[in-house]
Design a binder for these strands. Structure first.
Lengths: 118, 118
DNA sequence: CGCTCAGGGTACCCAGAGGTTCCCACGGGG
DNA sequence: CCCCGTGGGAACCTCTGGGTACCCTGAGCG
């Protein structure tokens, strides 16, 4: 219709759109990236990710979990010990996210400059 | 510290984080993708992108504009005629976004299944 | 016993994002 | 004469993202 390749992302009610919304989240990308190489505990992620609060991290992880990208393992005991890890599906996202984070690291300054100019 | 490669995305106040937040937006990815191959008018984007409202499209485009990813060209006249187009910086994002949309198209069903199961 | 501390999570509240509706400008066609 | 096509603005409403403060458990320790 407009000469764009299939990409049903443009359709409101399709799984692809849903999938985009899963990751189009301020924190989801950073959290997933934090789980890139191995499982981490809640508190590790808190230390790793600057500026995130406990509550928001929990929310984000829960959302990722119900979307099948992350598993939550409660080892019980006191103090609690909970580990989060990517699922197979979550790992398939690492390619795109790697590109995104690399882009961000390379072009962050340009974006900042545009903001200040604009 | 945690064995993760540099990735200063984890630092709260760095340009990379800012850049991630620019695109970690429900609509930004879809809108940018809609501008992938050539400039489009506001009304074209409305038709192309299912479920977006005029107001939100305008807001999203403005944000992308102030972040240096999109240009806005007003050709004047009545009815108005305005075209939006990717900047050079915006075009550098097409690689990552292509991967993201391809991932979404391939894995949307899996995410949906996880949601319904979880 | 009583105190604290660690780790993870939850109750409450507010600001802001997102959606809907209506309005404007104005040339052209029915 | 009325309405359409276009992009945008203003007003209004709802919903949820995020911050703060608090809770819970049991080990360790004096």
């Amino acid at each position: 219709m407009y000469g764009v390749e299939p990409g049903d992302i443009f359709l409101a009610d399709c799984p692809a759109r849903l999938a985009v919304e899963v990751i189009a989240d301020k924190w989801a990308v950073v959290v997933l990236w934090g789980l890139n190489d191995h499982a981490r505990r809640h508190s590790e992620l808190i230390d790793l990710i600057g500026g995130i609060s406990k509550k928001v991290l929990t929310q984000t992880l829960r959302r990722l979990q119900t979307n099948g990208l992350v598993t939550r393992t409660d080892h019980g005991g006191v103090p609690p010990r909970v580990e989060y890890e990517l699922t197979a599906l979550g790992r398939t996202l690492m390619g795109p996210i790697r590109m995104l984070t690399e882009w961000a690291e390379q072009n962050g300054d340009a974006v900042l400059a545009a903001q200040e100019a604009g």
